[in-house]
Simulated assay, not measured.
Amino acid sequence: MRRACALLLSMLCAPLAGAAALPTLVSTNLCADMLALSLAAPAQLLSVSRKSQDPRVSSMAERAREFPANDATAEEIIALHPDIVLASRRWQTHNQTALLSRHGIRTVVVPYPTTWPQIFDSTTWVAGQIGREAAGSALVADVQARLARLQQRPRSLSALYLRANGGSAGANTYVDTVFQAVGLRNHLASLGRSGWSRYALEDLVDSPPDVFVSADMLIDNGYAKSAYSRHQRLQQLMATRPVLSISGNRWGCSDWQLIHAAEQLAAQLDALSLISGGRP
């Protein structure tokens, strides 16, 4: 009887022991927050950055408000004493990492991938670092299935991502990766441009794309920064072509949420009834 009771007690306690074994963590920047909120068990997430609670820049603001906010200072992190701090490459410095390490806190630098395989690998890797391998595998499998559905329909048009300040993205960027997911040709990449750069208005007038793509980036809303977008010639040009919009603040971080951006683009293209390879 005693042995049976002991066995039952051990079975009941096993899930609790597994949950307690998960490392606690603090997330210190917006992109790290998105992964933490997507992968971590609620009980292990001690704090997220304050930006993640701002709906103007965060796609998970409502959920992020369920957790205490931090300003990414070493003092805050040490006071919370997590097992892990999720940080960006920019935030991480040798001295700060060493300081946290002396307090038993391990720094995990969140990768910044640019391709779908890299996104899947980084998601799986971060999930493993925080003891949530199954959650990472499930998230990756969901995105892969959605990506496969998107790629079943060709949408052979040229597209230019254009920010209000004239900034754009060529090959080897997550913008190019999203365009490829829906069958769009990256107009800037087709001109031999790689990485992030500015597309001169003169060049744009001479060589416009089939469609424009914009995103609701708060950083571009200032009057001085948006002068490019107010130019009369650009407005005339954009009036002659479809302008696709990515909303929901799922565009700034190169992570699994880019599948939402791809689905938004695909839905807008399909609604326009554009013929593959033709003019819009």
Rank of each mutant, 00 (worst) to 15 (best):
M1C: 11
M1W: 11
R2A: 07
R2C: 00
A6F: 10
L12N: 06
P15C: 10
P15K: 08
L16N: 03
A17M: 09
P23E: 09
N29R: 04
L30G: 02
C31L: 00
L37H: 01
L37Q: 02
L39T: 04
A43W: 07
K51T: 09
R56A: 10
R56K: 11
R56Y: 05
V57F: 04
A61Q: 01
E62W: 08
F67Q: 02
D71G: 14
A72S: 14
T73G: 10
E76F: 11
E76D: 11
S88V: 07
R89V: 08
R90D: 12
W91I: 00
T93L: 01
T93Y: 00
N95K: 09
T97S: 14
S101E: 14
R102T: 11
R102Y: 06
H103R: 07
T107Y: 07
V108F: 03
P113A: 05
T114Y: 09
F120Q: 05
T124L: 14
Q129K: 15
G136N: 06
S137I: 13
A138D: 15
V143H: 01
V143Y: 02
A148E: 15
A148L: 12
R149E: 12
Q152T: 13
R155H: 12
Y161G: 01
N165H: 12
G170S: 07
A171K: 11
Y174G: 06
V175A: 01
V182N: 00
V182A: 03
L191G: 06
S194P: 02
G195Y: 11
W196E: 13
L201P: 01
L201S: 05
V205C: 07
S207C: 08
P209L: 06
V211A: 01
V213L: 08
D216R: 09
M217Q: 12
I219R: 07
N221W: 05
A224V: 06
S229L: 11
Q232K: 13
R233I: 09
L234R: 01
L244R: 01
L244Q: 04
I246Y: 04
N249A: 12
D255V: 03
D255N: 15
W256V: 12
A261Y: 03
A266S: 11
Q268T: 05
L272K: 10
G277V: 05
